[in-house]
Nucleic acid binder design. Structure first.
Lengths: 116, 116
DNA sequence: ACTCATTACCTCGTAGTTCAAGGTATAATG
DNA sequence: CATTATACCTTGAACTACGAGGTAATGAGT
């Protein structure tokens, strides 16, 4: 029942994580982020603009990102950068991500580690 | 905007993957799967019955699972097992899972591997 | 000049998912 | 006799990714 073309499964929250991660290194604009994700994942993950822009706006509204407009060759780019709040949120998401991936990995390999 | 109580993020498709994986090892019934996932992931992932049962029904309808009713102590259990189709689907999902996790991992650690 | 691809921003509707809460019924426990 | 555990199930709400579409400006090709 997935029947999606690009990234069929396992994508909830991933775009937000990637965007937040990229914007802690350097400031970028939306259109740039779309291509940066494609490049950084070696074509493995492609997120459209319809995914990126709404996340950018939501994160800014939450105080996770700051933005500034910059005119380049007559066109206007909106550059985003992660704030302190955004970095805190990124830490949370990375922890969540690790928790989930480790748990899934444990089940996929039938490792019955009886801990705790 | 997560504001979810149990597993806030990164959970799309994961229940289906785990269920399919468990049912390739031995046949299980719904209520058992709920607890098996909790146990196998060391409490890291908890999926409710409201998640498990619909997936079970959908997978059976797709031919990924076979079911048989078994009365135990007056109660009726519905045991599910993965079919050949189900195992094929599991292979697909595991491949997808690996692709996504590797891609995300590469971005999280700023590994700029210029390949291809 | 004219056309087309690229850059760069954006919104909307649809589909698919998880989740909590609730509903039914039997067996075991106190 | 009441409560918990077993065991099945459905439903409504909330969220998210996705594709398609819309607006403009720039640059290249012809």
């Amino acid at each position: 029942m997935p029947s999606r073309k690009t990234n069929p499964e396992f994508m909830t929250g991933v775009p937000e994580l990637l965007i937040l991660r990229l914007l802690t290194e350097r400031e970028m604009y939306g259109y740039e982020i779309v291509q940066a994700i494609e490049a950084a994942t070696g074509e493995a993950i492609k997120v459209g603009e319809g995914v990126v822009y709404p996340i950018l706006h939501a994160l800014e509204e939450q105080g996770c990102l700051s933005s500034r407009k910059k005119p380049v060759n007559g066109r206007t780019r909106v550059y985003y950068a992660a704030t302190a709040t955004g970095k805190k949120r990124l830490g949370l998401l990375m922890g969540e991500w690790q928790r989930i991936t480790e748990a899934v990995g444990a089940v996929v390999k039938g490792t019955k580690h009886a801990n705790a």
